[in-house]
Amino acid sequence: MMVATKEIPLKEYVLKGNAACAGCQDMVALRHAHKALEGDVIQVVPACCTSVVQSLWPKVGMNIPILNTAFMASGATASGVKAALRAKGKDDTTVMVWAGDGGTFDIGLQALSGAFERRTDMLYVCYNNQVYSNTGTQRSGATPLYAQTTTTWFGKREPEKLLDLIVAMHEPAYQATANAAYPRDLFDKFKRAKEIKGPKFIHIFIPCPQAWNYPVEKGVEIGKLAVETGYWIMWERIGDKFELGRHSKRFQDPSKRKPIEDFLKLQGRFSRLFKPEKDEEKIKEIEDYIQHRWDILLKTLT
């Protein structure tokens, strides 16, 4: 049973008047993650939008301890925080990394891998807006096929790397995907993660109005379309027990999925797939890649 909206605590850890863009889905995810963790957390943040949304010294728009760190160093920094807590006998506090896709898929991958191999008791969250938003939308290892960025002006030629499988091969104690458009599900996943010792990973799909170029009010709609088109797969893995999420279950059958176009055409970053004329071939390629992702995920983890 998913948590009812009414049961989610009212206390806010994301404070109003912060520096996030209007409509930023990262803030929705942060709000509910922290409601689940209830403040007993130290959050490590590498260079990314989440470092900027905090706003300027001497104020910060979040009511939790935050240790900002270098772009590639989250896994290591969190390891140090955890070690200090252990040395001081305050081991119960959750140490959480909140890193972008650049800080996770690319520059921070080594530190993440090291921390997980050491079985560090921490929760690593990758909020994935599929691009380097903070520096003005350059491609990352998470940028999807044919998305336009300021380093792939005519669309990226390679699909994103399958980070979830890389992480899964570290055999974390807990692993899940989530989506800011499903905050109740997200809340539950953070609640579960809080109770589990060892390395934990939550990968959150975060539409970004700035970088994806869609009308700000459409963030939730796009997040849901990602699931309904099969583009984003919701799942959870406790130890080696894999479970397809209830939101994604029915989209395992490709015939039940909404056409991927519904997802793509709302976003300016895919405009070249529709202008000057529709590029059926490339859209088909994206669709095929989605199926490939389903196949390889299920083959590997079930």
């Binding site: 109003k16 912060n18 300027l56 010294w57 001497p58 728009g61």
Partner: peptide, 9 residues
Amino acid sequence: YSKPSVGAT
């Protein structure tokens, strides 16, 4: 180091 504040921006 910064203190949590409403209206930080």
